[in-house]
Structures are given as structure tokens and as C-alpha cells.
Amino acid sequence: MELGKKQVLTVVKQVDFGVYLGSEKEKVLLPKKQVPEGIEPGDPVEVFLYKDSSDRLIATTNEPKLMLGELAVLSVLQVGKFGAFLDWGLEKDLFLPFREQTFKVKPGDECLVTLYVDKSERLCATMKVYEHLRKDSSYQKDDRVEGIIYESSDNFGMFVAVDDQFSALIPKREVTPDLRPGMRITARVTEVKPDGKLNLSVREKAFIQMDKDALMVLKKIEECGGTLPFNDKADAERIKKEFGISKNAFKRAVGHLYKERKIEILADKIVIR
């Protein structure tokens, strides 16, 4: 009997509260409300095995949203003293320990998880899915993809599971202030690495993005009363904080506005003409 997987077991005994499946030496209960009509000893039944709230091995004919060896995005139902509980599609919610979370979840959040068997032989969820993601997608450079951000790194950027299954990264230089773990995003493939992992950007190609950035910068200057108290020689961190874009992107946007004669670049500020 394999915990966390679907398998076909044989009915060995019928009781008032259900049927036992397996063999005389090793059997598991399928509760009465789960028993298919007309079932008899010797009949095969496909079931999923897990442990109930009393840590007893139990069978179900219901379809779980996640089995061992799989990945799935599940909703957080509640957060308890030792972790969160996820909607698993079964009578018992799936436990996600705090130590297995890549970011602090709250009720209503969605998180990408896989299953593991803990030291007590119980099925639990983990958000540490990096090693479980595939690297054999058919996506190419400049393709548009969808995915979920499952982890953030100050050193590397935002880790993304494209289509909830393929390994991808938004490099640190491409991370924008609005991105956060748990978000579903649409992005552009900027590179397919030799090992099959994808690099992504939520920004358009430079010549398209420049127009969008220019409009955003112009609007920001207007909100500042027509004067920005620094120019394109400002510190990169200040630019990132104020506009959420890199210094190079800011310089391209400012240059675009200057050529269109919409702004004047002075020694210590930028003003609208």
C-alpha cells in the first residue's frame, strides 16, 4: 500500500461502516459513504490512501487535488499554530508547516506545493518546489508565458513556475516593485538557458517599453508639480525607488521625452516644458 498515491486494491471484508481493502495481512478501511454500490469481496477498487485526523491510514475514492510526485496550486484555508491548512479536495485539509513555506501565507492565498511524507509517516505540503520543477518546456525566446511566483531571493530575483510546472526566474535586475510571491504573472521569455531553465521579464522589449516608461515618467513629473528634483545622473537606487525601473531604462525614457521636447534636463532637476 502506497501512501499518497492512487492504487487498485481488492475488497477483502465488508463491515457495517464500510469495506476493508488489501489483504488479510494488510488492509485499509474505505468508509461506507465512499463504497461503490454493489461492491462485493474480491472486487477491485481504485482508491487514494492518506491518514485521517486520528493518523489512521484510510482510503477514499474521491480525487485529491495533489498526489505524491505532483505539483499543484492550492488555496490556503486557515493558518494555525504550527502552519497553514490547504484545500486538498478531501475530507481532511492538507497541512503546510511553517518551515516548509517560502513566504508567509495567509487565508485566501494561493501557493504552489508538492507532497512529502514527514517523520510521522503523514502527508504534508511543502512550498520548496525548486528541485521538482521541469526544465523541458518548448518555450523559446520572446514567447509569452504565464506562471506563479513561488519564492523570492534578494540575490537572484523572483522564482517562477511557468504553467505551474517549468523552472523559471525573473532576474534581480528585472524585478519590479509590484511583484510579490504568490502572484500569477504574464511574462516574456528573455533567455532559454542551456539546462532548459527560463529567464523572464515582465517588461516589454526596450523599444516598446521605452514609450511606456516615458509616459510613466512624464506623469510622475506632472504629479510633482512639473519639476522632478533630480535628473538622469541620479543614483540608481533612488531611481528604482521612485520609478521602479533601472537607471538605464530611466535614461532611455528621459532621452525620449527630451527629443520630443516635452521636458528640459537641468543640472539638478528635470522640468516639464
Rank of each mutant, 00 (worst) to 15 (best):
R173C: 03
F207Y: 07
T61D: 02
M127T: 03
E146N: 07
L228A: 03
P229A: 03
P41L: 12
V113L: 04
L112I: 04
G147M: 08
G255C: 10
G83I: 11
E242F: 11
D43I: 05
R184L: 02
Q14E: 14
C124D: 06
K51G: 13
G226R: 04
Y130W: 15
L77K: 15
F98G: 00
D43N: 09
F230Y: 15
E131N: 15
A84C: 09
I170T: 07
L29N: 01
V129Y: 08
V129N: 11
G226E: 01
S153M: 04
M158L: 12
L96G: 14
G182Q: 00
Q165A: 10
D16E: 13
K172R: 09
I272R: 15
V76R: 06
K27C: 13
L115W: 10
D211C: 04
T176W: 06
L29Y: 00
E223Q: 13
D195Q: 11
G69C: 09
K32T: 02
K269A: 15
A253G: 06
L94W: 03
L29H: 02
D55A: 13
K25V: 05
R261E: 12
K135F: 12
R252P: 04
D142Y: 14
V145A: 04
K119Y: 08
L115S: 08
Y116F: 15
